[in-house]
Simulated scan of single mutants.
Amino acid sequence: MDFTISERQLGQDLTSGAILLLALLVINACSTQIAKQTSTVEPAPEKADTSAKVIPKNEPKSKYGNPESYVVFGKRYYVLPSVKGYVEEGIASWYGPKFHGKRTSSGETYDMYQVTAAHKTLPIPCYARVTNKKNGRSIIVRINDRGPFHDNRIIDLSYTAAVQLGIVSRGTGYVEVRAIDPSVSPIAIAQTAATDTQATPSEQTAVQGSQSELKIFVQVGAFGVLANAQGLAQRLQAFKIGDVQVHKFTVAERDIHKVWIGPLNDVAEADVTVNKLNEIQHQDYKIVFSEPF
């Protein structure tokens, strides 16, 4: 199945000959995401339809953008065979004017005024409910692009989706992404879509003041045995990456010892921490948000 690198993911000027060569080699797919892997906040456009909604429906997989796996920046990503059971929490970003009108990985044209998103591994197109964990705003998006190819981001939202969730001004937000299977209960899903909540401009400002309620941590391991967690913490402390701590959680009546770095001040500091982990070849990590301990 073809996998196309879009302009968004390629992120560099190419001569027509080079573009032709890429087309001939069928190396098309992860475009503008490569160009925008930093956490820089884009200037906001002037308008967004805060009442726009997406109603999930059954759609065939796109001809483009659904290989078994693909490689970006030396990292291999495996496309999921279906959306069933997919739930993830992490940092969302958004992309806007710079990529408006560019081709997405699915072959469709990116429209920042539609309620869409990019995801690294969910089959495209598909649908997911995205919930801002800090203000409770929740919407359904249609995923039709690949990305974001940044270590600390799980989904890249269109401008309108970001406005509805209240994360435009900051550029990022802590969200839950829950994939939707339209074949399960189409009527119930349509009814749920009608209850989507969106942040008004005044609410977005208020939310900024409440960002301190949850703190950012980088989880670098989880163990059933306390000694194993403490061993990892000691090894990481030797590299002076940050404040490495072991926290105990009880899951299904079983104690789990999680090794966290933090709390961190913001997403930028989390990015720096992850870069340090990559430098020492520790790539088993994820971003988590929690109240301070």
Rank of each mutant, 00 (worst) to 15 (best):
D2F: 12
S6K: 04
G17K: 14
L22I: 11
V26L: 13
N28C: 12
C30Q: 07
T32W: 09
I34V: 12
T38Q: 09
T40D: 13
P45H: 05
E46N: 07
S51M: 05
K61I: 07
E68T: 10
V72R: 02
V72Q: 05
S82G: 06
G85R: 03
Y86T: 00
Y86H: 02
E88D: 09
E89V: 01
G90V: 00
Y95K: 06
T109H: 03
D111H: 07
M112K: 02
V115Y: 01
T121K: 05
P123L: 05
V130M: 04
T131W: 02
N132V: 05
N135S: 08
R137P: 02
I143N: 00
R153K: 11
I154A: 00
A162W: 00
V163I: 12
G173A: 13
A179H: 06
D181T: 10
V184C: 10
V184G: 08
V184D: 15
I189C: 10
Q191M: 14
A193Q: 09
A193W: 04
Q204N: 12
T205R: 14
S212W: 14
K215C: 11
F217A: 12
G221R: 06
G221H: 06
A222M: 12
A222C: 13
F223P: 04
N228W: 03
Q230M: 11
Q234F: 08
L236I: 12
L236V: 11
K240V: 13
H247A: 11
K248H: 08
E253G: 11
K258I: 08
V259Q: 00
D266W: 05
V267H: 03
P292K: 03
